[in-house]
Amino acid sequence: MRLLNASGCLDALTAPDVAAGLDTFVTKTVTPLPRGGNDPVRIAETEVGMLNAIGLANPGIDAFLTHVLPRLPRPVWVSVGGFSVRDYTEICERLEGEDVAAIELNLSCPNVDEAPSGGGEVVAAARAATTKPLYAKLAPTADVAENAQAAEAAGAGGLSLVNTVKGLALDERTLRPVLARGAGGLSGPALRPLALAAVHACHQATRVPIVGMGGVSRGRDALELLAAGASDVALGTVLFSDPGAPARIRAELEAELAAHGFADPDNIVGAAHEAEASTLDLESRVGRKKGLHTRANVAG
């Protein structure tokens, strides 16, 4: 299991020590042209999560390649966004010769007006444009399993589950939207059951590895995503309140695994799909061979 950050939830250049606590750093989404993003106010807090409408603020692929990418820690995944199929393929082509471990295709940003439709089409075009591993980042929509299958069929080597979903917060006094844009992407605790359901469904529907994310704030949350079928876990909103979250959640996960009788997080991947709840069967699980539940074996 690798621990990553969710795209857009960490800047490795301003917080290198936080990024150093992760196994892989994922960039904020890069688009062909520079984007300032949406007007302020761009964030709001609710009782159950956080809303953001940043709007894919980024320096554009030219400045990213010149000024940002060379300074980022490795291994690094680049999140790629755009407003047409051509936007995605252009950036994939530009990244081809770079030291980038994987490309995450942001197919589900809730904060732009002209997001591309047809995730399968974007993935297929990106697949033709790069040899790098492609992860499709999907939102926890009702048809997420179908979208995941379409992405897999089009050549995605993995899934990033999940992106935020649209939410709205109203100002306490004025009853007007807090965010200048109106609605924004909901993240944090409210997203966690949706992420679990999406990971669970896509683990059944596809055979590609899944990076699970959405509301992870404790080791227990990471454990559940692994059990639902994620093989890696990413941290998002929790990083905002606790820059020490990577080390803390790792330690908590280790304790949770030990309490459930697992020595290695890879052994619990997909456990939620087993016919029998095996919490009563700690003895036998301690002796399980590593990799029994990895995607390779499930696929095998």
């Binding site: 301003t14 807090e45 940043i54």
Partner: peptide
């Protein structure tokens, strides 16, 4: 002043326009 989620440059929530560009106030 601006609303901030993190205070250390991670969330991009506190962007304000400085010299015609949106920059993070916390950084």
């Amino acid at each position: 002043e601006a609303p901030m989620a993190c205070g250390y440059g991670a969330c991009y929530g506190c962007a304000v326009e400085i010299d015609g560009e949106l920059k993070r106030l916390c950084v």
